[in-house]
C-alpha cells in the first residue's frame, strides 16, 4: 500500500483551519472563484463609498471643449458627448448600482420574509391567496414587471428601487415559506407550543432565525440580478433620470450613435456592469455552497 502523508491529507481537509482568519483563508482557497467574487464585490462597495475621493472630475460637470475625448492621461476612460469624464461617471455609477441593488434587495427581502413567514405559519386562506398572487407575479418576467411599474410611477431612484423590489417579494417569500413549513413540524417548535408560547413569538424567536442562512444565500444571489435590472431599466430610459450617472443610461446614450466613433463610451460601462454582476454571482454561488449545500444545483 502506498505510503500516506497524513499531514498533507489533513491540511487538505482543513484540519488546522478551524477558527477566525485561518478558516476564511481555507475557505477562500477551496472556493477560489467565490474569493474572486468577494474581492470584486469589496472593490465595488469601496468604490461606491469613496466615490468622491476616487473620481478625478465632477461626474456632472459639462465641458464642451473636451467632448468625446479619447482615453488619455487626463481622462483615463475618455469623455462623453458633453465632455463629462467617463471614469468619474463610472465611479459614481457604482454608488447608484449599489444603492439600487441593496435597497431593492433589502426592501423586497424584508417584505418577502414577512409574507413568507405569515404564509407558511398561518397557512389557510392567507397562504392560498399569497400562493396564487405569487404565481401570477412570477409568470411575468422580472424586467417587464419593473418596466410597467416605472412607466406608471415615473423614473426616480426610489421608484426604481420599488419597481425592482416588488417582483423580488414572491421569490423570497416562497423560499421562506418552504423553510417555515419544514420548521413548523420540528419538535423544538412543538416544545415552544407546549410551554404556552404565542404563535407570533414562536414565529419570530424559533422559526425566523433558522431561515437566515437560506435568506442570505438568496439575497446575495438576487443582488446581481437587481443590478442588471436597474441597468436594463436605465438603458430603456425608465431608470435613473438624467443627469445622474447610471451605467445602463451611459450605455443607452452612446450605444447607437457612438459605438463606432467613440467605443470607449460603450466598452467601459459594459465592463462595469458585467464585472459587478459577475462578482456578486460568483460570491453568491460560493456562499450557497458553504452555508446551504442542499441548494446546490
Amino acid at each position: 500500500m502506498a505510503t500516506i502523508d497524513y499531514d498533507l491529507e489533513l491540511k487538505r481537509a482543513g484540519a488546522n483551519a478551524t477558527g477566525g482568519w485561518r478558516r476564511v483563508l481555507f475557505l477562500a482557497r477551496r472556493h477560489v472563484l467565490g474569493a474572486a467574487g468577494l474581492v470584486i464585490m469589496t472593490v465595488f462597495v469601496l468604490t461606491a463609498i469613496f466615490a468622491d475621493f476616487i473620481a478625478r472630475y465632477d461626474p456632472l460637470t459639462v465641458d464642451a471643449a473636451h467632448a468625446l475625448a479619447r482615453p488619455s492621461a487626463a481622462h483615463w476612460m475618455g469623455t462623453d458627448s458633453f465632455g463629462r469624464d467617463v471614469f468619474s461617471r463610472i465611479i459614481h455609477g457604482a454608488r447608484i448600482s449599489l444603492a439600487v441593488g441593496i435597497g431593492s434587495t433589502a426592501l423586497g427581502g424584508t417584505i418577502g420574509v414577512i409574507v413568507g413567514l405569515t404564509s407558511g405559519y398561518l397557512a389557510g386562506w392567507f397562504d392560498l391567496v399569497f400562493q396564487r398572487v405569487s404565481d401570477i407575479l412570477q409568470a411575468l418576467p422580472l424586467l417587464v414587471l419593473a418596466l410597467v411599474m416605472t412607466a406608471a410611477l415615473g423614473p426616480s431612484l426610489p421608484n426604481v428601487i420599488l419597481a425592482i423590489a416588488i417582483p423580488l417579494i414572491p421569490t423570497v417569500a416562497r423560499v421562506i415559506r418552504a423553510n417555515t413549513l419544514a420548521l413548523r413540524e420540528q419538535p423544538f417548535v412543538e416544545a415552544a407550543k407546549s410551554i404556552g408560547m404565542s404563535e407570533v413569538r414562536i414565529a419570530i424567536r424559533h422559526v425566523l432565525p433558522n431561515t437566515l442562512a437560506p435568506l442570505i444565500v438568496l439575497a446575495t444571489a438576487q443582488l446581481g440580478s437587481t443590478i442588471l435590472t436597474e441597468a436594463s431599466l436605465s438603458f430603456l430610459g425608465l431608470g435613473i433620470p438624467e443627469p445622474y450617472p447610471s451605467w445602463g443610461r451611459m450605455l443607452s446614450e452612446s450605444a447607437a450613435e457612438y459605438v463606432r466613433t467613440a467605443p470607449w463610451l460603450v466598452i467601459f460601462p459594459g465592463i462595469a456592469i458585467s464585472l459587478a454582476v459577475f462578482g456578486t454571482n460568483l460570491f453568491g454561488d460560493a456562499l450557497r455552497d458553504i452555508l446551504d449545500p442542499r441548494q446546490r444545483g
Binding site: Q186, P187, F188, E190, A191, H206
Partner: peptide, 10 residues
C-alpha cells in the same frame, strides 16, 4: 421528545 437533535432550537 425523541429526537434530542431536532427538539432544541440550534
Amino acid at each position: 421528545f425523541q429526537d434530542p437533535f431536532a427538539s432544541l432550537n440550534p
